[in-house]
Write a protein that binds this DNA or RNA. Structure first.
Lengths: 335, 335
DNA sequence: GAGATAAATGCAAACGTTTGCAATATTTAT
DNA sequence: ATAAATATTGCAAACGTTTGCATTTATCTC
C-alpha cells in the first residue's frame, strides 16, 4: 500500500533516466532500446504505477473512450428491459475492449439536448456509438453534420449521412412472413410499430411477402414491449376473435408476450396460430413452444461498429453495412 | 460548425474577462456575480463550448466517473446473457447519472489481473461498483484492502471488508421454499450452484425451510444458465423420473429453462411440479404459466450502491446493507 | 466624504503527461 | 583511427483547466 500516488517523474528519478524515456518506454515506443523498455515496464509494475489518463488525454487530445448511447424513445421507456438491446451493448463492450478502447455508457435521457456536443466537445469520448435509431433521426443527423464521429446500430438501408450497421430487416421480415406462408398461413398479423426505424423495414418485408402471395395485410401497431403485445393480442381475441392464423412479431419479446395471450386462451401454437419473432434472444429457445425467429448477428455487428468508428476517427469515409440474418425455425412455426 | 475547438481562454477573451472568471462562472461558483455567471454561461452555450474534461480532471484530480465491473466467473460466460445482471447495470447507470456521474463499463475480462489498480491509479475512475460477487472474493478483498473505493452488488451478509448491497437472499430462499411447502410440496429440488456467492445464501434459506418442516433436501447443482437448467431437468426426468413435486430455482432464467423441460414432458405446472424463481425479470410475468418469483428491488439497490460509493469517496465509513425482497406469487406455484 | 468592509475579478502557478528537436552514445564504413 | 551514419536519450514547452492569493471595485458606516 503506497501512501502517495507515484508519478512519471518519480519513476524517472528512481530509474535515473529522463521522463521522456519513461513515457516512451511505457508506451512501447521503439525509439527506446528494448532492454530499457523492459526494465522500465518492470519497474512500473513493481511500483504499481499507471499513467495518469487525464494528463495523457490532455496532452494527446485523444481519450480512447467511446460513448455508447442507448437511444430509446422516451415514452417506451420500458423497452430498456429488452434483453436484445443490452446484449448488443455487451457485445460492443467486448469489441471495444479488444481494440483497447473503453466504453462510456449512457442512456440518452441524460444527454438529451445536445449529447453529441456533450461527449465530443468536452473530450469525454473520441466517438459515439448510437444503439437504436429510434424515431428521431434528425437528432443524429445533426450530430453527423456537425462532424461528430459516430456510427449507428439500426437499419442500414435508411438513407443517412452517417454509417449504419444492422441487419437486413427487410429480408428478415420477408423471410419470416414467407416462411409462415409456406407453412400454410393465410391471415398473418404484423405485430409491432411500423413507424419505428428498424421495424418499418421489417414491415416492408412483411408486406412484400404478402403481396407476392396475394394476401391481405393485418397490421397491429403496438409499443415494442412484451406486455403491450400481450394486452393487444388479448384484446384482439376478445373483440374480434381468432381472425388470424399467424403472427410476425417485430421482436422476440413481443412474440413472447403474444404467445402468452394465445396460450391463456388455449389457442394452439403453432397449429392455430404460428409465430415468428425477431432477434433470437436466449428466451426464444427456452420458451415453450420454442420460438422461431430471425437471428441477428450481434457479435459481428459489434465488431463492425467499432471498426467503422475507428476508420472514421482515422479520417476515412465509411459506408453503412448490411448484416446477414438467419431464419431459425423452431416449434412455434412448424405445423 | 466551428472549424477549431474553442477553449476557455478564447471565451475569456471574447467576454473581456479573465479565465478564472470564466472557469468559476461555468462551475456556478457563487464568488462570481450572478449576472456575470449568466452572461458567460449563455456565451458558452452560444459558442458550443464545453470544458475539456481531461484538463479539469488533471487539475482537480477527480473524474466524476465510476467504473462498473460485471464480475462473471470465466467459465460460465453465457450468464452475461442473463437479463437480470444487465438490468442492474442499467439501474446503476440511471442512479449515477442522477448524481452527475458517468459510467465506465467493463467486463472483468479486460481488467483481469489488477483491475482495481487499473481504474484507480490511472485515474480513469474515482471508484468502482462491482456487480456480482462471483466466486473469487479475495480479488475484491485485496482491492478493498488497498484502499480502492468500491462497493459490491452481492449478498450483504457475506463477511467482508467492503460494503455489499444486495437482497436478503437467505430470506428469499426461505420464503420461496416455505411458500411451496405451504402449497403442499413435499419433495423440493433446489436448482442452482450452492457454491456461488449470493446463491449459497438462497440455498441456506431453502435448507432452513425444509428443516423446519422435516423435509429432505434435493440439491441439483448446475451452471446458472437456462440451458444448463433445461438439460439437467431433462436428464433428471429421464434417469430418475419425477421424484420431486417442486423446484426452487436460483434465478428466473434457470426456472424458465426448467419449465421448458417439464412442459416438453407434459409435466403439469403447477399441479405436478410447482416452481419459484428469483429476480422477477420481465419474462417471469410473460412466461406461461407465469412464474412465481422473488423480486429484487434493483432500483433501490442501485441508488444505494451509488450513495454508498459517494460516501466512501467522501471519506465516510459505510456498511453493507440488506434490501428487502418480495415474494411474487403467480401461476407456477398456485395449486 | 473618508476609511473600512465586503464583493467581484485577475494573476500565475500548478496538475502529469507527451513530443519535436537537440544532444549524446553507439555502430559502421573507410 | 576518423568521419559519417544511426541508435538512444534528454530538454523543455506545450495541453486547458482550477484555485490560493492579491488586487480591484462596489458598498457601507459614521
Amino acid at each position: 500500500m503506497n501512501n502517495k500516488k507515484i508519478k512519471l517523474t518519480d519513476l524517472a528519478k528512481l530509474a535515473g533516466v529522463s521522463t521522456s524515456t519513461v513515457s516512451r518506454a511505457l508506451n512501447d515506443n521503439p525509439l527506446i532500446k528494448q532492454e530499457t523498455r523492459d526494465k522500465l515496464q518492470r519497474l512500473a509494475k513493481e511500483h504499481n504505477f499507471s499513467l495518469n489518463t487525464a494528463a495523457s488525454r490532455l496532452r494527446t487530445q485523444k481519450t480512447n473512450v467511446v460513448a455508447v448511447i442507448i437511444n430509446l424513445d422516451e415514452q417506451t421507456e420500458q423497452s430498456i428491459s429488452d434483453p436484445f438491446l443490452l446484449k448488443v451493448v455487451s457485445e460492443i463492450n467486448l469489441a471495444l475492449n479488444q481494440q483497447g478502447l473503453e466504453l462510456l455508457l449512457s442512456n440518452s435521457i441524460m444527454a438529451q439536448d445536445d449529447w453529441a456536443n456533450y461527449f465530443i466537445n468536452s473530450r469525454r469520448a473520441d466517438g459515439i456509438i448510437v444503439v437504436g435509431q429510434g424515431k428521431n433521426q434528425t437528432n443524429i443527423e445533426n450530430a453527423a453534420n456537425a462532424g461528430i464521429p459516430l456510427v449507428v446500430w439500426g437499419d442500414p438501408k435508411t438513407p443517412s449521412n452517417y454509417p449504419i450497421v444492422g441487419s437486413d430487416n427487410y429480408l428478415g421480415g420477408l423471410q419470416a412472413t414467407t416462411h409462415l406462408i409456406e407453412h400454410g398461413a393465410k391471415n398473418i398479423v404484423f405485430l409491432g410499430d411500423p413507424e419505428h426505424g428498424e421495424i418499418s423495414e421489417r414491415h416492408r418485408g412483411y408486406s412484400a411477402a404478402l403481396a407476392s402471395h396475394k394476401l391481405e395485410q393485418h397490421v397491429v401497431s403496438i409499443d415494442i414491449t412484451s406486455s403491450s403485445a400481450y394486452q393487444s393480442i388479448n384484446q384482439l381475441l376478445r373483440e374480434k376473435g381468432l381472425y388470424f392464423d399467424a403472427i410476425v412479431a417485430c421482436s422476440d419479446m413481443v412474440a413472447l408476450g403474444a404467445m402468452k395471450a394465445l396460450k391463456e386462451r388455449y389457442v394452439s401454437i403453432p397449429n392455430d396460430v404460428a409465430l415468428v419473432g425477431f432477434d433470437d434472444i436466449a428466451m426464444a429457445d427456452i420458451s415453450h413452444p420454442s420460438l422461431s425467429t430471425i437471428r441477428q448477428n450481434t457479435q459481428y455487428a459489434a465488431t463492425l461498429l467499432v471498426q467503422k468508428l475507428m476508420q472514421q476517427l482515422a479520417g476515412e469515409k465509411v459506408e453503412s453495412q448490411v448484416i446477414d440474418i438467419e431464419l431459425i425455425t423452431r416449434q412455434s412455426s412448424k405445423r
